[in-house]
Amino acid sequence: MSTKKKLIKIFLSTLYLSAFTFGGGYVIVTLLKTKFVDELHWIDEKEMLDLVAIAQSSPGPIAVNGAIVVGYKLCGIPGICFAVLGAVIPPFFIIALISVAYNAFRSNEAVQAVLFGMRSGVCAVIASVVYDMASGIVKNKDMTGIILMFAAFTANFFFKVNVVYIILAAALIGVIRTLVEVRHGTH
């Protein structure tokens, strides 16, 4: 297949996946795998798992990160550009349209009621996500993780410490812990 055709295919795939996936980055990463590994056979399974690990462990939206690794693997830098463009266009246009209508939309009483009610739903969704993530850490008996969890919550919620510092501190602890483990040969 020619590079031009490949680029168009990458663009259309990420465009399509981004327009129709609700529910966050983990979903889109799974769909990228289905598309490029199972359907097109452009990337092999083991390699895709490593690429997904890179997408998930890097900062930024996972859907965009997933598009970047796939684009890079298939066509280098041009591949990245087409994949990212495809992933960004649908949410950009949808939200731009909503935000134009937002003020008229927001002053409507029925809309206010629905948005207020949905807030309870959003909180429940967030609570459920937090529960799943936290129970994963507790089940692994990761003591450092459990302590970090309480420390980060106290610092952020009660002492209003900037989230930037908390993230940098946690990253630093992770790097030190890994280096110590590697040195002791437990890794």
Binding site: I126, A134, I137, G145, A152, I167, A169, G174
Partner: peptide, 12 residues
């Protein structure tokens, strides 16, 4: 591995 617990707390 160390970032995840901190991130959970901040989402909460």
């Amino acid at each position: 591995k160390s970032l995840r617990p901190a991130v959970v707390s901040m989402i909460l």
